[in-house]
Structures are given as structure tokens and as C-alpha cells.
Design a protein around this nucleic acid. Structure first.
Lengths: 125, 125
DNA sequence: CAAACCTTGACACGGCTGTGGTAAGGTACG
DNA sequence: CGTACCTTACCACAGCCGTGTCAAGGTTTG
């Protein structure tokens, strides 16, 4: 049969079955299905799921953000419009503002980390 | 004085003062400040705010998404990592899945539109 | 100095994200 | 055919986004 069903895939990738369905729905992974409709996970999909996990963790990304990245690649007009907006008017309000946004991003992270620290955090069994 | 304070800027851009502060905080607009700390909006900033509004409407974007786009431009490693992820394994699970994700995106939009239709929707005065 | 305006910080609220459940019903396979 | 597994659909819930509003206190300017 050479392809895993959802629970098996869940076990070998670390995602919950629930999330595997969610990820498919979010357009981040296409799967084939068995004649009866079962999701089938082949080696490529499994690999993709593992790297997905790494990617999200490494950069603290959300699935929705990847979804947006995906949209950027599939809508060149959108990508161009955004580029133009950022490019326009070097944003210098006479005094270059010290990266206030970095602080803002970091606050978010700190909140997350604080929450994570109080959580038991299951290590790989 | 040649620079507007927040309420004046709000009136001429269509954003609420609240949102102007939010936009600054989200890192989408840098401003200079008066000696006393008042936000000062010059012509460049006002223009930027107007085009921002257009951009969001035209592509149905969220501020957070622009924030992410900004992050993409300022973190090349991140951008590369994401590119690689999407590039890897042409995602063909043997049968190319009919764009399920398009439907998913459209559902979101439909919900939004439905909501918008029941809303009075203020035309440019 | 006083009136009008600004600042930050907080509470509030609906809507979406990311998760976890559970129920009702179909599939796989010994 | 029965058991174990899968599917979709829905409820739930914390946390963040986009907004509004209000309070306490500083700034501007006549």
C-alpha cells in the first residue's frame, strides 16, 4: 500500500490528525485519496509536513502566514502592489525612527514564550 | 507648522485616530513627533495612509498581512526558507488536486462580503 | 492659566486561527 | 460480518486582530 493513513502520518510527523486535516484545508498540502476517500500520505507529503513543522518553529510563523506567502506567489499583481507600497517614499519622517517595530514584534514573542514556559511542553517521547 | 496632528490626519485620511496609532505600532508608518510627543503627519505620511487604505481594500488584505510582508522584506533568511518550502517537491500527489484552496479562500471572502452587505458602508462623503 | 488636543494604558467585543473534542456514518480488511 | 480506522460536520475555547471607548495625565497656544 506504501502510503500512510492519517493517524499513521500523525504519529510519524508529530502533527495531530486534526491538524493534518487543517493543513490540507489551508491549502498547504495536497494529498491523494484512496478510492473510499481516505487521505493518503506518501513520503513526499510526510517530508513536507516535517519541514513545515521546522519552518514554523524556526521562524515562529503561523499557518495563516504561510497561507499568505502562498497567496503572494500566486498573485503577482498583489505582490507588486505591496512592493510598490513599501518602496514608495523611503518612509523617512525626517528623523529615522529607531526600530520601534522590532520591539513590538518582540513583545509578542515574549508573551508567547512566557505562556510556553508555564506549559508542560511535551518532549519527543 | 505644516504637519497635522492625529485628529486632523484622521479627518483627511479616513482612518480613525485609534487606527492611526495602531498602524504606527504595527510598524507600517514611521512618524516624527513634536517635542512634547505629539505624532506629526506630513504630506508623505498622509499619502501613505491613503494608499494603504486603497491597498487593503483592493486586495482585501489585513494589516497583519502587510506586517508579515514587511517581515519578509526585512528577513531574507525567512523569505528564502519559505521559498524553498514552496519550491520543494512540486506538491504533485500523483493526481493534481483541483484548487481546493481557492474554494477555501472564497468562503472567507463570501463571509466577509455577506457581513459587509448588511453593514451601512459609508461612501466617501 | 485654561480650553482643546494629545499620549499611553486599559477594558470590551466580534471575528478568525489553531487546537481539541464528539457524533453520525462510510471504508478496509482479516 | 465485525472491528478498527477514516470522513465530514459541528461545538468549544484561548489567543490575536481590528476597533471603539474611557481614564489619567501631559502639551499647545491664546
Amino acid at each position: 500500500m506504501e502510503a500512510l493513513t492519517i493517524n499513521e502520518a500523525a504519529r510519524t510527523t508529530g502533527w495531530s490528525p486534526r491538524m493534518l486535516r487543517y493543513i490540507e484545508r489551508a491549502g498547504l498540502l495536497d494529498l491523494r485519496r484512496s478510492p473510499g476517500g481516505y487521505r493518503l500520505y506518501g513520503p513526499a507529503q510526510l517530508q513536507r509536513l516535517r519541514t513545515l513543522r521546522e519552518l514554523l518553529e524556526r521562524f515562529d510563523l503561523a499557518l495563516a502566514e504561510l497561507g499568505f506567502a502562498r497567496r503572494l506567489r500566486s498573485e503577482p499583481r498583489l505582490a507588486r502592489a505591496i512592493d510598490e507600497w513599501f518602496e514608495a517614499e523611503p518612509q523617512r519622517p525626517d528623523f529615522i525612527a529607531p526600530n520601534d517595530w522590532l520591539r513590538w514584534e518582540q513583545e509578542k514573542h515574549q508573551a508567547l514564550l512566557a505562556a510556553a514556559n508555564t506549559t508542560p511542553q511535551l518532549e519527543a517521547a
